[in-house]
Amino acid sequence: MREPAALRQEAEALAGPLPPLLAAAEHLAASVIPGQHGRRRVGQGDEFWQYRPSHAGDEARMIDWRRSARADDSLFVREKEWQAAQSVMLWLDMGQSMDFASDAKLPTKADDARRLALALAVLLVRGGERVGLTNIGLPPRSGELQLLRLTTALAEGHDATEYAAPELRGAPSRSRAVFLSDFMGDIGPAREALTGAADRGISGALVQVLDPVEEAFPFDGRTIFESMGGTMRHETLKAGDLRARYLERLDARKSELRALASATGWQYTVHHTGQSAADTLLWLYTALERVH
């Protein structure tokens, strides 16, 4: 048998390097009080669900004779509830565009997306669901160990590209998925991912994460616009003249995403890094109920 001191030392070594991301996600998850998750339906299980009148074809062993004795000429079957563990796959945009924050008091889009994704995983795993991460092909699993795997992958993950492309690596057919991104790059990969998901019976939710400045476009006069990865740069002397055209294109992108989600059976919302993450988390949690 292993010595208790050695086991404790190993446990402390494992927990020591964990970033504060999990603690932040736990705190966020605790701010949301969800209802019962999963579909309530008849099946193999331990929890009593309901009595129903006996039908032709029911075996005698299925009849609850004590309940039936209280009825006049009626037989009742005692049904149990099956809470089937379902799989939810997360994809988080780790491209360089997500590293943007317009103010030191605001989190980057990536940090807010990480916290939302992990807080959702906390709620789902502790509700008996299986959660995976498509970025690294992490298959859906349940349990606290899976939360540690997700924490490590989300905290350390990074994509060298400017705008990352959604993917469903390792996602089982007829599962659910959540994509978190600013969706500011080419919409083609998102369209391809969602249509491919629909073909496999995968439904889910899109969360477009934006910084407040990206919504307001408060720039005027001489301004230099440069992408986070440095691959794009534009200088103008009249930034204010670009505002209307920029906001029109942003609205068009939102409309595209909303229409794409609707056509493929997904849900869509916008999350701003300056708003309450708890509100978006609650929306996400209930959205997954609506799409399945």
Rank of each mutant, 00 (worst) to 15 (best):
M1K: 08
M1F: 04
R2K: 06
A5W: 00
A6E: 15
R8D: 00
A13G: 14
A13L: 15
P17F: 02
A23I: 03
E26L: 14
I33W: 02
G35C: 09
Q36Y: 00
R40F: 00
R40K: 05
R41Q: 10
G43R: 06
Q44F: 01
G45R: 10
W49Q: 09
Y51M: 12
R52V: 04
S54V: 15
H55Q: 14
D58S: 09
E59C: 09
E59M: 11
A60D: 15
R61T: 14
R61G: 08
M62T: 12
D64T: 08
R70M: 09
D72M: 05
L75Q: 06
L75C: 02
R78F: 01
E79P: 07
E79L: 15
E79D: 15
K80V: 07
K80C: 05
E81G: 02
W82N: 01
S87F: 01
V88R: 03
M89C: 10
L92G: 00
A101Q: 13
D103C: 05
D103E: 12
A104K: 08
L106S: 03
K109D: 02
K109Q: 07
A110H: 07
D111S: 04
D112W: 01
A113S: 14
R115L: 11
A117W: 03
A119L: 04
A119Y: 02
L120W: 00
A121P: 01
V122C: 06
V122K: 03
V122W: 01
L123M: 10
R126H: 06
R126Y: 02
E129G: 01
V131T: 05
G132L: 06
L138H: 05
P139K: 12
P140V: 07
L148S: 07
R149M: 13
T151D: 13
A153K: 06
G157P: 04
A160D: 14
E162Q: 14
E162R: 11
E162I: 10
Y163H: 15
A164I: 05
R174V: 12
R176M: 14
A177M: 09
F179S: 06
S181W: 05
D182E: 13
D182T: 13
D182S: 12
F183Y: 10
F183W: 10
M184D: 09
G185C: 12
G185S: 11
G188S: 13
R191P: 10
R191K: 15
E192S: 15
L194A: 14
L194Q: 14
T195M: 09
R200Q: 15
I202M: 12
L206W: 04
L210F: 04
V213D: 05
A216T: 11
F219V: 10
D220N: 08
T231G: 06
T231F: 00
M232S: 09
M232G: 02
R233H: 12
H234Y: 13
G240E: 15
D241T: 07
A244W: 02
R245S: 11
L247M: 10
E248V: 03
R249W: 02
A252W: 01
R258S: 09
A259W: 03
A263Y: 00
A263W: 00
T269Y: 01
V270G: 01
H272R: 14
T273S: 04
G274A: 10
A277Y: 00
L282P: 00
L282N: 07
W283T: 04
L284Q: 04
Y285W: 11
T286D: 07
T286L: 11
L288Y: 04
R290S: 12
